[in-house]
Design a protein around this nucleic acid. Sequence first.
DNA 1: TTGACTCAACATCCTTTGCTACAA
DNA 2: TTGTAGGTTTCCATGTTGAGTCA
Length: 448
Amino acid sequence: MTITLSFEDGTIRIAGDPPALPFVEDDPRSGTARAPAHRYADLRDALDERGVAYDDRVLSSAAAAADLDLETTYELRPYQREALDAWRDNGDRGVIELPTGSGKTVVAIGATAALSTPTLVVVPTIDLLDQWGRELEAEFGAPIGRFGGGEQRQERITVSTYDSAYLRADEVGGDFGLVVFDEVHHLGGEGYRDIARLLAAPARMGLTATFERPDGAHEVVSELVGPRVYRASADDLAGTHLADYDIKHIEVELTDEERARYEEAQGTFVDYLRTSNITFRSGSDYQELVKRSGTDPRAREALLAKQRAREVMMNSDNKVSELERILDRHRDDRVIVFTAHTDLVYRLSERFLIPAVTNETSAPERREILSRFRDGTYSRVVSANVLDEGVDVPDANVAVVLSGSGSEREFTQRLGRVLRPKDDGGRALLYELVSRETAEERVAARRR
DNA sequence: TTGACTCAACATCCTTTGCTACAA
DNA sequence: TTGTAGGTTTCCATGTTGAGTCA
């Protein structure tokens, strides 16, 4: 009896009598065997290896028959070519790690053209949905489908948000031969990883500037998309394809009043740790404290105190004074200011008359501000985390990080905002402001 | 079509003191 | 002996996004 493979609700249905394979399970309800859709390529390999004949109906007729005959006019830069080759050598699977501004999109376009198969591109934001849509349309001269932002139109090349892909993967999972995950580190999220599980696409490409995740979930991404096959850092490309840069680390003192508030709050936190048998041996022990805070008022008070201490050290007055000096020094430059708190964003915006972009800024207003930043009407902009990722931010040459998390990813993304090569060949500059003798010194050390 | 709202999901959040098991 | 990695799980707060609903 011949084996027949087909796609059904995010799984591969295997009718007939398949050999025992570790990822194939019996499905008593349908009387057939099933494998998770993402194992499609493995399944075919295993059957081929055993010389088992099978009728493959997994990819919908459109996807299976399609030779889109795509061509790209892009001339790949040497590192882009190497990345694409490494990905192809790994059986059209794997993650490519390239810094912001180095042209990750171009590599994906190269892959799409090379495979000429129906392609799904998954992106985290609507902004990126639009950008990819425009770029693919211009490059291939074909209509580009969209899942997300109020549209649900499928084409042979379709761009989707992670959220819409999550909602539709079990239904359209058999329609694409190639899937590209932009900012693929998001795929490690508990829910999003199901997207990759429900798609049958044998060819998979992940793109990111920061592959590794502090919670280790990049291992899951490796399983679902493939291992990291190529990596170039900002340092590798600085001076040639990206701007050279300097990082200036500036320490500021807390005022007496801030110091008192900081010590009081931080003391409350540390005291609780000392008296409650909570040890911080590894990062996730913080979760233990959070859990306790649900039932233990003292734990809750300790966390709130920690929150207050963080606010004091991150938003200290002397950082604002220091920013004033920096802005003065860089009158003729294009400056992006980053903070960790929206309150501070608005304070800075009022005091220095800088346009602010936060999550509360409406989409049209945000477009307006960024467009004026692009054409030079505005030379400065201040934001919390909105501009870190997934937004097309016009190039700047000076970044000021007033405060941030210990996340290496956040830091890399912020640095990436100033790394596009400068017309005059000038260097980019990132200022990092840190309150002396506070936990912020550790935080800053951790992110690098 | 728009704008406002709600909701769910994701990400970060972190410190000293030395437990325990195991590998080099 | 010395050095290093190990195991556990649902939520204090803030910032951000996309989807969905309704006027």
